[in-house]
Amino acid sequence: MSLYDELGGAAAIDAAVDIFYRKVLADDRVSEFFDTTDMEAQHAKQKAFLTVALGGPNNYTGKDMREAHKHMNLNEGHFNAVAEDLIATLEELNVPQAKIDEVIAVVATTKNDVLNL
């Protein structure tokens, strides 16, 4: 069973997205990338990201990741900041450390695509 299902599937993920989105918005290192007037669209993007990270149903490809982050000039510091915010989100949801490690392992595989390396 994926962590996505364990957390309660699509319905529960909305609450997780809210927590995560609040964290990145409040994180000076990366908030500029998340602070837009179209909060609904941004929320949907975070939901897609968390769904991938938690192993939920998605058809996201490395190519999509690459395309979505292409013109953002992200560096390793940005990537790590978002990963930390994700860890803090999962801790807030009382996800056990072993599961958090699994999630971060999945996220790490997207690094080259996100940073367009």
Binding site: D14, A15, V17, D18, Y21, R22, L25, A26, M39, E40
Partner: peptide, 12 residues
């Protein structure tokens, strides 16, 4: 909207 969301209201 941003302020209320950061203040704890759920996006939905």
């Amino acid at each position: 909207r941003k302020q209320c969301f950061l203040g704890g209201a759920a996006m939905a």
